[in-house]
Computed example of a mutant assay.
Amino acid sequence: MASTEVDTIDTGWVRENPEAPSARFGWSGTAPRAYAIAALISGLIMFAMLKGNHVGHVEDVWLIIIGVVLIGYAAFKMRPRKGAWKRA
């Protein structure tokens, strides 16, 4: 019968938890750059939706607000930060 013990895995990272399920793949965390790219694309799609058969401009206002917020989020996340690699 196979053992259920987790072996210590040398991933090269000091802070890597050897009991994490993703330790064998060498990565655990989020993808902030992917989120920023998705927000940028979604914001551009919001602006593309401005062209249409709108009679009132309430929809346009909401599309502009949401598009600006998404593009602002993407710009904030994509800007280079000095010393970000030093944080724990």
Rank of each mutant, 00 (worst) to 15 (best):
A48R: 04
W27C: 06
L40K: 05
G52V: 05
Y73F: 15
D10W: 07
I41Q: 14
A23V: 11
D7S: 13
A36V: 00
V61H: 11
G67M: 03
T11A: 04
G83D: 11
M49G: 09
A36H: 01
T11K: 00
D10K: 10
P18A: 06
R81K: 14
A36F: 02
A39H: 05
A38H: 01
D10R: 07
K86D: 12
P32N: 07
L44R: 06
M49C: 14
P21C: 03
T8C: 05
R81N: 06
R33Q: 09
L63M: 05
A20G: 01
I9K: 08
A36N: 02
S22P: 02
Y73A: 13
D7P: 11
M1T: 08
A74G: 01
G12D: 00
S22T: 13
A74F: 01
L63W: 07
R33I: 14
K82Q: 10
Y35A: 15
W13G: 01
I9Q: 00
A84H: 05
V69G: 05
I65K: 09
A48D: 10
G72Q: 02
G26T: 04
I41D: 10
W62Y: 12
I65G: 01
G43M: 03
E16R: 12
M78I: 11
K86G: 06
N17D: 15
A2V: 09
V61E: 13
A2D: 08
G83L: 04
D7A: 15
R15N: 14
F76H: 11
W62E: 10
A23M: 01
L70N: 05
L63G: 00
G52Q: 00
G67L: 06
A75R: 03
A88G: 07
A74W: 02
E59M: 13
